[in-house]
């Protein structure tokens, strides 16, 4: 059961600011969804390995060489606020 307090904590971790009515709606909907998901509890998975990925890939390596990459100007072209060659953000500390 997700309480209002749980939801506020998860929202903070998600960097989302929820209005009062959003909190009520999401708490109700997430509880409905998680209740439905309880069906997984009746499966015994004690000795089952998890699957994170379907391909039999381990680490994928390549040679370390300098290729053609996005230029600094292109990388900065979409940023909302910049100063010279830097992304500019509000005060951090």
């Amino acid at each position: 059961m997700i309480t209002k307090k749980d939801l506020e904590h998860v929202a903070l971790l998600s960097r989302l600011e929820l209005t009062g009515s959003e909190k009520a709606m999401f708490a109700r909907q997430l509880n409905d969804i998680l209740n439905y998901f309880q069906s997984l509890d009746c499966l015994d998975t004690e000795n089952v390995q998890p699957t994170t990925h379907v391909l039999p890939l381990q680490n994928v390596f390549r040679e370390d060489w300098v290729g053609q990459h996005t230029s600094r100007q292109d990388a900065l072209a979409n940023c909302p606020d910049r100063q010279g060659d830097y992304f500019r953000v509000p005060k951090i500390v």
């Binding site: 960097r15 990388a75 979409n78 940023c79 909302p80 606020d81 992304f87 953000v89 509000p90 005060k91 951090i92 500390v93």
Partner: peptide
Amino acid sequence: GVRYGVRTEGTGDVMDM
């Protein structure tokens, strides 16, 4: 809101943004 996309400025620090 740092490298691309729409930023909504807050009134406070980076967390608020």
